[in-house]
């Protein structure tokens, strides 16, 4: 049983930098942001700054979950922002222009996201293209595809089901939070409840060894991109639901970078191998929490990015083995 404890400690250890960062952020807010932890219910709905962080952070949480899995295979997916745009465009055009039932539109959007992921997977695992280059193709072409779908316009919709995705509440909890939590649970079940997580980590850590041990390395890698694509599609639905429109140009713009950052803060090494889905979610919430905190302190949006960069730099340095060893060395008399 001590082994089991040690194993979970190691698993937690990977998410430690992100957890510590979130902890520090919460402590800062406890001290300097009056009312940050206040929770109120407005018409049976939870509200407050913490709920706001979770709510707004949901999109990057979704992206970070998929990204962590892809990074664990030794890859990266730069196309998630573009896939968000495609998914939003798919759902919006189907529902608003073709009168398709909202549920079918949602299913179609997720299917399109998975298809985009399998395209990436085929390029990386099948054709052996470098992941950065392979997913760059869809990052650029994906927005073009989304614009073709929308005919270059912003497609607005007003469908109760689609609106509900972002604005709805169930038992007082906002839908985006519930969707992100469900995605976390589902991805944990899919990777840790099966052998997929082991195969992903083996393939990312030592691909040759995994292949020689009988792991279907290519299939595992392709599966990672499909999962990432599907997660990005759900994120795209949330983003579209938020503005009740599909904006092919701006939906998910630059969010691939936030997703990579969240996954890395969460303890998934960019060279592949071990990954932590909890860590990735925490990383995403840290990024959102920082943004919200700065906003609450009236920091100008221009300065926000600089402060964000500095905070991220600090977390990365704190997580660096070399820096830790150096500090240890210096602090000794």
């Amino acid at each position: 049983m001590r082994d089991a404890a040690r194993a979970s400690l190691r698993a937690f250890g990977r998410a430690a930098p992100a957890a510590a960062a979130v902890g520090l952020l919460l402590a800062f807010n406890a001290a300097f942001t009056p009312g940050f932890f206040d929770l109120t219910t407005v018409e049976g709905r939870l509200a407050g700054s913490t709920v706001d962080v979770l709510n707004r952070g949901a999109v990057v949480v979704l992206l970070a979950l998929g990204m962590a899995i892809v990074i664990a295979t030794g890859g990266v997916d730069l196309s998630v922002g573009a896939v968000m745009a495609i998914a939003g465009a798919t759902a919006a055009t189907l529902a608003a222009r073709h009168g398709v039932n909202a549920w079918s539109a949602i299913a179609a959007a997720v299917a399109v996201g998975a298809a985009a992921g399998s395209f990436n997977g085929a390029l990386v695992a099948g054709a052996g293209v470098q992941p950065i280059v392979a997913t760059l193709v869809l990052m650029v072409a994906g927005r073009g595809a989304a614009q073709l779908l929308t005919g270059g316009q912003i497609v607005t919709f007003n469908d109760p089901v689609l609106n509900f995705l972002d604005a709805g509440f169930i038992a007082g909890a906002p839908m985006p939070v519930l969707i992100a939590a469900a995605a976390l649970a589902l991805s944990l079940l899919l990777t840790r409840g099966t052998a997929l997580g082991l195969f992903i980590e083996a393939a990312g850590d030592n691909e040759r060894a995994a292949r020689l041990a009988g792991v279907r390395v290519r299939a595992v890698k392709a599966a990672a991109y499909v999962l990432c694509g599907a997660a990005a599609a759900v994120a795209g639905l949330l983003a579209a639901s938020d503005i009740r429109a599909a904006d092919a140009n701006n939906a998910g713009l630059y969010l691939e970078l936030d997703a990579i950052l969240a996954a890395v803060l969460g303890g998934t090494a960019l060279r592949g191998g071990r990954f932590s889905l909890f860590g990735a979610a925490l990383g995403a919430l840290f990024i959102q929490g920082l943004t919200t905190t700065l906003y609450l302190h009236d920091v100008s949006p221009n300065a926000t990015l600089v402060v964000k960069a500095a905070a991220v730099l600090a977390v990365c340095l704190a997580a660096s083995e070399r820096v830790r060893a150096w500090i240890k060395h210096r602090s000794r008399p």
Binding site: A7, R10, L198, E201, A202, N206, R208, A209, A213, R274
Partner: peptide
């Protein structure tokens, strides 16, 4: 090292 051991995974895995 290059063909058999997956260094980051545990002995168990």
């Amino acid at each position: 090292k290059s063909d058999a051991i997956v260094p980051g995974l545990s002995v168990r895995e």
